[in-house]
Amino acid sequence: MQNPGSWDPAAYLRFAGERARPFAELVARVGAEDPQVVVDLGCGDGSVTATLAQRWPDAAVTGVDSSPAMLAAAAPRAVPGRLEFVAGDLTDWQPDGPVDVLLSNAALHWVPGHGPLLSRWAAALAEDGWLAVQVPGNQAAPTHALLAALVDRPRWSSRLAPGDDTVLDPAAVLTPTGYLDVLSAAGLDADVWETTYLHVLTGPDPVLRWVSGTVLRPVLARLSPPDADELTAEYAAALREAYPQRADGTTVLPFRRLFAVGHRSG
Rank of each mutant, 00 (worst) to 15 (best):
V182Y: 06
V101E: 01
L103W: 00
P35V: 01
A145I: 07
P35G: 01
E230Y: 01
G203T: 13
A140F: 00
R264G: 07
V86D: 01
P206Q: 08
H114A: 07
H114S: 06
N3A: 14
V99G: 06
P226F: 03
R155G: 12
V133Y: 02
R120Y: 02
P170L: 10
F23C: 05
A24Y: 05
A75H: 15
P98Q: 03
G46E: 04
A149I: 03
V173S: 15
V151Y: 08
V135K: 01
Q139K: 10
L239P: 08
R240G: 04
D227E: 15
G129H: 04
N138D: 11
D96P: 02
N3L: 14
G163R: 07
A148G: 11
V37E: 09
V99M: 04
Q2C: 08
R155D: 14
V151S: 10
R209I: 00
G17A: 15
D164N: 15
A50W: 06
G266K: 10
T175D: 09
P112A: 12
A24Q: 13
V167W: 15
A106T: 08
D40A: 06
A123M: 06
R19E: 12
R21K: 13
L118G: 08
D40F: 02
E234V: 15
A161N: 02
L216I: 07
W156K: 13
P9C: 13
R257W: 10
L258Q: 14
T177Q: 15
H144T: 09
N105G: 09
P136F: 03
D45L: 00
M1P: 11
L174H: 10
